[in-house]
Amino acid sequence: MTAEWDPPTPLFVPTLILLTTATGVVSSLGAPLVPTIAAELGVSLGAAQWTLTASLLAGAVATPLMGRFAVGARRRPVVLAGLMLVVAGTVLAAAAPAMARWSDDLSLGVLIAGRVAQGMALGLAPLAMAAARDVLPAHRIGPVMAALSVGTVAGAGLGYPLTALVAQLGGVSAAFWFGTV
């Protein structure tokens, strides 16, 4: 255990599992929505694809940067800041389709900006694993790492069909509101 951390509370591991599961769901919001985004916003499939690409690029940049900034006692503030960005991005993405009445390009730009903020979610799972490694006793690290990994994959696995179903029933905006929740 490092000196920067207090002993974990009973909710520490469940909170990390919830974090990795939620980030898995949020990271899966893009792919099943691309055709619906193109149809709802009146843009080409190639333009709508940028909503997925932008999120993945942001995650690729954010993950090592967040890891670098989240050293020791700064891990918690970086995780909280990352969560706030993800929530803000999801709200922005949910609001973007309503802007289509003014301009499809504006709506797509706002949606892409929201998806960039959502890309921060990709850096949160490694931070959750690092926090568990730093805080937990050695005999608990392996099982908790497995649970965090399963949480991430389960979140993504649940995210694809649920997002597609919500989008089919309520549109793109509803799918992103689902991600916000």
Rank of each mutant, 00 (worst) to 15 (best):
V43S: 04
A70M: 01
G46Q: 12
L52K: 01
T63I: 08
R68E: 09
A70F: 07
A73F: 01
T63K: 00
G59C: 02
V61C: 06
L18I: 15
W50K: 02
V34Q: 04
W50C: 04
T36P: 13
T53Q: 04
V71I: 13
L19S: 03
R74D: 14
R74M: 11
T20R: 09
L45I: 14
A22N: 10
I37W: 00
R68P: 03
S44T: 14
G24S: 01
W50G: 08
G72Q: 09
S28C: 02
T53W: 01
S55M: 15
R74A: 14
A38V: 00
V34W: 03
V34R: 05
A70S: 08
A31L: 09
P64T: 09
P64E: 08
A47M: 10
A62K: 02
T63H: 03
G59H: 06
M66W: 09
A22I: 06
A58M: 15
L65E: 14
T21Y: 12
G67D: 12
V26Y: 00
A62V: 03
L41I: 10
A31Y: 11
W50T: 10
E40I: 00
I17L: 13
G59D: 02
A70H: 03
T53M: 02
L18G: 13
V43D: 04
R68M: 06
A48W: 04
M66D: 07
W50F: 12
S55H: 04
L41D: 13
E40N: 00
T63V: 10
A70T: 03
R68I: 01
P32M: 10
L56W: 00
R74T: 10
L41N: 11
R68A: 08
A58I: 07
A38D: 04
A58C: 11
G30R: 03
T36G: 14
G42F: 00
M66I: 09
A31P: 12
V34G: 05
V26C: 05
A73W: 05
A39M: 11
I37G: 04
V43E: 05
P35F: 01
A39N: 04
V26A: 11
L18R: 13
Q49T: 15
L18N: 09
E40H: 00
A60E: 11
T51N: 10
T23H: 02
V25W: 06
L19R: 07
T21C: 13
T23L: 06
G67E: 12
G72H: 13
L29W: 05
R74H: 14
G72M: 05
